[in-house]
Design a protein around this nucleic acid. Structure first.
Lengths: 147, 147
DNA sequence: CTACGACTTAAAGTCAACTTGAGGTCAAGA
DNA sequence: TCTTGACCTCAAGTTGACTTTAAGTCGTAG
């Protein structure tokens, strides 16, 4: 069973070692085994971190991630609280998917005829629709679309 | 032509006045007209801000928004640079849309049987796919998390 | 003239999510 | 034995996107 050093884990998932130590500190990773004071990981930590990374890309906060994926401590499997949280998250994601389509249309339109008129027009449309829509909390600013 | 006070604009789009001043400061809004030192707006500012809000919801940074929508700086060969930016953004959005579906599936699976199996399975999948992706576009050796 | 309320600025504070820095430990190799 | 290099901890610094605070200005109403 190959044991990974923190630097190796970091390299494989594209984070810095400091981020991994931080994740342990805030409870997203369990305290790692030590050998001579140093953290040793087995490869399952990579799967866990892959999910974390992906969830971060979707705009989940670390706190949400901890609760959604690793927060079913001694509670019953799929407790009511957890179910609510993930149901809300699912709704958020659906809304987000719709808005992505809209933003794609806007970008397409602006690329075809790069006119300020189009922008204002679109703003008008967004404004009217957003009166109908329920409010969506903007994603955490850390939500990045590129690496 | 009705002139809006900053507080009125703020109220209508759901931001604080301080945020609007900040947007002016960082170049997302042009310097407003003044009357007796106070900013006055006409209603087109609402359209502009509606687009900004929506773009923020999609995870664009203010800097990106400035460049994408209002970044026609004098040294810019107009549409070419802009076209590249939005093309990249479109690709990002498409990727994101796919990832949202994946995340929805994971959450669904975890709701049905709150299983670590699903989590690991999914993490494995993500990890493998991201390996293929990084084959297409190899990561720079030093992974930049900021700026 | 004074008081009021809404505005103004500049500077400092806040928050999440890390990163950086200082100073220290440990195992392996020359 | 000494050096090297990767790790450790704890504290402080950084970033983006604002907000808050302190001190001041403007126009109207009493």
């Amino acid at each position: 069973m190959s044991q990974l050093l923190i630097s190796e884990v970091a390299r494989q998932i594209g984070l810095r070692a400091s981020a991994i130590r931080y994740y342990e500190q805030v409870g997203i990773l369990p305290p790692a085994q030590r050998r001579g004071g140093q953290r040793r990981y087995d490869s399952t930590v990579l799967y866990r971190l892959a999910v974390v990374q992906r969830a971060r890309q979707m705009g989940f906060t670390l706190e949400e991630i901890r609760q959604l994926f690793f927060g079913f401590r001694k509670a019953t499997p799929a407790s009511e609280r957890w179910r609510k949280l993930s149901q809300r998250k699912l709704a958020d994601l659906e809304l987000l998917a719709g808005q992505i389509k809209e933003m794609q249309r806007l970008l397409q339109a602006m690329m075809e005829k790069c006119s300020c008129g189009a922008l204002e027009q679109c703003g008008k449309g967004i404004l009217q629709r957003s009166c109908e829509e329920s409010y969506i909390k903007p994603l955490p600013s850390r939500h990045r679309l590129h690496r």
